[in-house]
Amino acid sequence: MTASDRDREAKPSTGGSESADASRRGFLKGAATIGVGALSGVPTAAKALEFDIEDFFRKNFRELSDEELEAVLRRVEEKYSNRYGKQVTVSANGPMEGVVFGYGLDVSRCVGCRQCVYACVDENNQSRDPEIHWIRVLEFEREAVLRGINLEDGNPYYEPDQVPQEGKFYLPVACQHCEDSPCSQVCPTGATWQEPDGIVVIDYDWCIGCRYCMAACPYGARHFNWGEPNVPAEEINPNMHIIGNTPRPRGVVEKCTFCIQRTREGRYPACVEACPVGARKFGNLLDPESEIRYLMENKRTFVLKSELETKPKFFYFYGSSVTR
């Protein structure tokens, strides 16, 4: 990494500098100089506001032709490569034939360590400050859970020295990728929808930030960029998917995508690999040999808020009859 790369990384959120490459490609950039740049006396150091006419008038992701999509991907790659000073790849990998994703979480094993939370943050380029977590782990009194889970009893802010604590029960919650997703039903712009492989995604460039989906989501899975999102350049994950973990602008909603950039390549989501107790399971619901189908058929499972008939594809299960 060169020194100039590091300079650029120092202020990752203010945006990339005008590169020769960018102008060669004929991008229309409205550059505005900010006082900080003028102080340094070097015009090239002036931070350019990332305003791109083509991006502004981009069509909804679902309506882009293959050529237009390709152009968008290259443009986004360029933008983020400049901003973070490292080579970024942005794909738009489509779903696989005959695959609908399902997720399993073994509540009899979860120890509430939050490794998944931070693996997710790293993988999916969530804002560090203001903080956004796609996964929220609730701690319950085991005794209370024996009478059924009442989410009001949950506490996401537990911080003992060690977990699991005696007599506690942990329940991580993220997007449940509902088959009848209330969020996509209410979205006024059609900026969020369910893909053929069951992943509920958001077109971050199409979302206007009205937050109706957040009102509608029964699982508190959707998170809003209240302020300018901030990911240190050295921590950015350069392996991106356009409707997955590309850095979000301020004022839009984001949520778990089952790590679409990984799972559409056949890989496990980051949280599955991070879990130290192997409580997290993932696979193809249409494949009778998959681990998700096995656990649905052989274990006691439940879904959150089943009475709402959202038909989640996120199944909690009891992998062990003796829990800890």
Partner: peptide
């Protein structure tokens, strides 16, 4: 994952708790 001599999962330190809404302020 399991020490055969004492196979139960050994407690570990949890990662930091999420910030409360009151703590997420526009810097």
């Amino acid at each position: 994952c399991h020490d055969p001599h004492s196979p139960a999962f050994k407690p570990i330190a949890p990662k930091p708790r999420p910030r409360r809404p009151e703590e997420i302020a526009g810097g």
